[in-house]
Amino acid sequence: MTPSTEAETPEQEPSGADGPLDRDTFPHIREPRGAARLPLGDGTWHQLARQYVWVQLISSGIVLLIALAATLVLALVLGQWWAWIAGGIFVVITAWTMIITPRQARSYGYQLRRDDLVFRRGILWQRVVAVPYGRMQLIDITHGPLDRGFGIAQLKLVTAAVSTGVVIPGLTQEAAEVLRDTLVDVAETRRTGL
């Protein structure tokens, strides 16, 4: 897919870095350093809300505490020595996940182009998906209790092809609603035989 020389965003997109899509977000998208990385291309990339990192850290911390408690109960109370190995591996993996969460969150981004929405994520395992506006069948906003407490939500785009479904996590509630309305408006004008 080659970028168009015309305007890259739909007419309904809120403009400027001061718009609701860019409020309380990271300042720029983080790219992998290698020469073989997937390029970002031209245009305005929008990012996740900063609160997303806190939600992920709190969720992982709760899982970590539960795993530690289960390990201690199994090992000390029930005398199951193997629990130290399993618990130790789980704690190391969860701690590593918590350490890389801020960097990982800055690798997420989405771009509203003339004919499609492009979503990218990942540092080591990169994924770039372009979803044509005319192929969107469902746009869903969801948020759990912790998400609501921090004022964020996730936006899910569903198409006929299961592999091109996109979930954009960690949007501010306002950005999720504006993006949903924008995508619905644009998708209605771009329906392609559905």
Rank of each mutant, 00 (worst) to 15 (best):
S4Y: 00
A176E: 09
P20Y: 05
L78F: 03
W84M: 12
A153K: 11
L157G: 11
V77I: 14
M1T: 08
A160W: 01
L183Y: 08
W96C: 05
D24T: 00
L40Y: 07
I100F: 10
Y110E: 06
L183D: 13
G87C: 01
M136G: 10
D147T: 01
L38P: 04
P132Q: 12
A130G: 15
R113H: 00
I29D: 08
P132D: 14
L194V: 11
Q47C: 06
T189L: 09
H28S: 14
T44F: 02
A75Q: 15
L124Q: 13
L76Y: 15
M98K: 08
Q126G: 06
W45Q: 08
V158W: 03
I168A: 08
D115S: 03
A176V: 02
D18G: 09
A36H: 14
F150C: 00
Y133N: 10
L72M: 11
S107P: 05
I89Y: 02
L21I: 01
A49T: 02
V53R: 08
I89T: 09
G149Q: 06
L124W: 15
D22E: 13
A75K: 12
S163E: 14
G109Q: 06
D18E: 11
G16T: 09
H46I: 02
A69G: 12
P39Y: 05
I93S: 12
V118N: 14
R23M: 02
Y110L: 04
R120A: 03
L21A: 04
D22A: 12
A105K: 06
Q173M: 05
L194S: 13
L183Q: 12
A17K: 14
Q12I: 04
V186K: 12
W84K: 11
V92K: 11
A49R: 01
L21E: 11
D181A: 08
T71H: 01
G144H: 07
R180D: 07
S107G: 06
V129W: 08
R50K: 07
G41I: 01
G109H: 03
V55I: 07
I139G: 12
H46Y: 09
I168F: 13
T189G: 10
A69K: 02
Q111W: 01
R33S: 08
Y108W: 14
E11P: 02
I89Q: 09
L74E: 14
P169N: 13
T101D: 09
E11Y: 04
A175R: 09
D115P: 03
A7T: 01
G149S: 03
L112D: 10
P145G: 04
R120S: 07
D115W: 02
D185R: 07
W81M: 07
L117W: 09
I152M: 01
E177D: 09
S4K: 03
A70G: 00
E177C: 04
V63P: 08
R37C: 05
L38W: 13
L157A: 10
R180Y: 02
L146F: 01
V178T: 15
A160T: 14
I100K: 11
D181N: 12
R191E: 11
H46D: 07
L74C: 09
A17C: 05
Q173K: 03
R103L: 06
G149R: 09
V92N: 12
I141A: 11
V162C: 07
P27R: 09
E174C: 00
L171E: 13
V131I: 11
A17R: 15
L40M: 10
I62H: 02
L179I: 05
V91M: 10
L40V: 06
L78W: 03
V131L: 08
